[in-house]
Design a protein around this nucleic acid. Sequence first.
DNA 1: TAGATTGTTAATCGATTAACAATC
DNA 2: TAGATTGTTAATCGATTAACAATC
Lengths: 211, 211
Amino acid sequence: MKDRHVSEAVIRRLPKYYRQLQELKKQGIERISSGELSVKMGLNASQIRQDFNCFGGFGQQGYGYQVSSLLKEIGSILGLDQRYKVILVGAGHIGQALTSYSGFARQGFDIVAAFDNDERLIGRQLDVATVRPIGEIAEFLTQNRVDIGIIATPKEVANEICELLTKGGVSAIWNFAPVDVSSENVIVENVHLSDSLYVLSFRLNQLRAED
Amino acid sequence: MKDRHVSEAVIRRLPKYYRQLQELKKQGIERISSGELSVKMGLNASQIRQDFNCFGGFGQQGYGYQVSSLLKEIGSILGLDQRYKVILVGAGHIGQALTSYSGFARQGFDIVAAFDNDERLIGRQLDVATVRPIGEIAEFLTQNRVDIGIIATPKEVANEICELLTKGGVSAIWNFAPVDVSSENVIVENVHLSDSLYVLSFRLNQLRAED
DNA sequence: TAGATTGTTAATCGATTAACAATC
DNA sequence: TAGATTGTTAATCGATTAACAATC
């Protein structure tokens, strides 16, 4: 098992491997070589072997990789062999979309509570939790260990929610508000959906400029 | 104006610059140097100047960059000085979240129609359009030029919707279904929300492994 | 054993960073 | 003019790719 530095680029590829391996397993494919995988994923076979060897030798010379065990290994590296307690702050459309997507719960992310300030939403039963007022977050966090907080609020309040969650002991924040949030001692993923739309728009214009 | 090759890394940074400049403008800041920008964004000043010079010299020696004109330039590079006709396929929570987010319309992305197969949604008035049956997509596309199609359907049908949109002459597809879609002659952005959650989970476990 | 494919080292390529002349 | 900061070339660094011995 190696422990060399794992670059950002490698980390961002891990979920892609994970998804591809899930797909292979679903198709009943039991083994795969780095060469075959490279064709399916549009990567270089050397890169794939290098990536896997950041974490240890998962393959077998002359044979390749066993799909099910590689899937398990990468799942474990990503922490997907564990369960996480998640709370949602902001129960609008995005928030509801995330909580109602059963894939996340299946993968180990359990929404244990949802919060919003909108009177029309408070008390409403989402698929997984009843919506409570935002004012109850702090108290909830003193009584429940929570791993991940999802911020799906308007951007104006995102940063104060981030502070609130951090103070309450949440370890990580998945932020969908269109603003960067940050805080000491907490891991943050700022999603910024618009960024990918802008890239799409950029490519569209490049293409049109060619003609 | 240069025309050197623009790398993927540069393209992905453009929206970040755009957002930062919008913020600066909102704050009433009229000029900024690459050095100041580098501090605010956590990038290297040389990198920022290199990035901008992929597209032309937008600065003034001894002065820096004028925020408003740089914002306009980058907006133009991203194609955000134009308007796009967008249709939504899949009017569930994610779809509704995207269409009701007014930021996109303000930025030039106009939802002109929405489609779904769910009887309970068909005929419903979203913020921007009435939900129509999926069967009407092909006809709609023969009568309306559409630039971008958003796929926010279950993964099972995502690829056939992608085909349908491409055949109908849509130029680009913004896909939120948790599966890669692709087609000839169309630009695709596959969003994969779960990937960022998995990265979050990875980091969380790295952190916990340190303790 | 022979063939296949890994794990790993070495080579290449490209992206980031540093340096500095140009110039506002 | 002197000071500041760009645009751009050169140096460095890191990531990707190639090559191949190890070995299943």
